[in-house]
Nucleic acid binder design. Sequence first.
DNA 1: GTCTATATGGGGATAGAC
DNA 2: GTCTATCCCCATATAGAC
Lengths: 225, 225
Amino acid sequence: MKPESPRPASDTKERLLDTAERVFADHGFAGGSLRRITKEAGTNLAAANYHFGSKEGLIREVMARRLEPINREREARLERLLEEAGDAPPEVERIVEAFLAPVLRTKHELGDAGTTFMRLLGHAMNQPSDRLRDLLTDQFAGTARKFLAAFGRALPGLPPDEILWRMLFAVGAMTHTLAMSKHIVPLSGGLVDPTDVEDVTRRMVRFVTAGYLAPAAGAGAAEAT
Amino acid sequence: MKPESPRPASDTKERLLDTAERVFADHGFAGGSLRRITKEAGTNLAAANYHFGSKEGLIREVMARRLEPINREREARLERLLEEAGDAPPEVERIVEAFLAPVLRTKHELGDAGTTFMRLLGHAMNQPSDRLRDLLTDQFAGTARKFLAAFGRALPGLPPDEILWRMLFAVGAMTHTLAMSKHIVPLSGGLVDPTDVEDVTRRMVRFVTAGYLAPAAGAGAAEAT
DNA sequence: GTCTATATGGGGATAGAC
DNA sequence: GTCTATCCCCATATAGAC
């Protein structure tokens, strides 16, 4: 919002964030040490505490730097498509795309750092009761509510709880895919190309949209256990 | 395979595994210390190294104890349904169920420990190059290949790479849901009940089956970015 | 098999010079 | 803003008594 500083932003601060993102993704938040991060960033140990106050402060900035723009873009896309739809119910596929594309686009723009961040997101999601976890879910809650409302309008036949479950499934499909896609290459014998973001987006949107459009449970078939 | 020892198995060894599962799930593999695990298990620090050789040995046993039976059951269910189908192509929904139900059933049987293990699985999946990661993917590869072949027969219209992607989506939907289901309760205002395993299984099978049955990409719609 | 005690190293955070 | 040096704590692993 305010004019960028003329030189390439601060300097070591950005380098620390980039390095921390990678190290935390590779070793987890607990396993990634400030010593390692500052060393690989080419600065000294004290710099991390100087710029971020503490290890937790660094973690929070690493996450927020990526997540805030993603959720902003998601909401902007959603608002746009709702406006275009006017009084008519919006299309499910377009809502799904508004939800997924900003993440995939971010991953694409960031290159390797994008994949790294997706793994990092996986770590963050698995923190159970930490302040960090609460931060993430709180921040996501606003975006989630807007999408849940939109899906509710697009899928009037589905009860709200079913829509909520399906959003959880969709988020899982997305985060897991982005974090793991590299690892399915050997399993496929080189069949898949996880670097083709538009291709992956198309496949993911198709799968998730079909899931949302599945008929409601009713007197369901699947005999569990 | 060999006769169980008369008393409730060893004793502290099981307690250590149970405690380690919980502590690792809460704090990650790096963040969960042997000190904490042994203390909460009510034994001494040296016991962990005595029984498992090292921290890594403990981690491996924690994971293997749950994963091996799950993948065995998955394969057994798959074989059974393939036999029943005979020469006809198997039904997609039944394959999906053979893949998902053993995990959900395990989670159900284990109660709280089941949820715990699912979070733990999330941690393990996010380890990038560790030996642990390779162990998991190697072990899963055999099961995955059998399911990919079955899906190939059930969905002759889908190219193999699409089937592979969809399996990745399905695994993500499952693991993420099982790890996070507890956290969506507040978001739903109490609408959802993650403890009703048959209910969750039915919903998940329905969503994932619809995703598998979506038409192949072709000259796809979704304009990405 | 279980314990205490300890060896050895790495961790986050900070003080204070430049 | 960046550095070195240091405080103090916690980690894994092991030795050796019981």
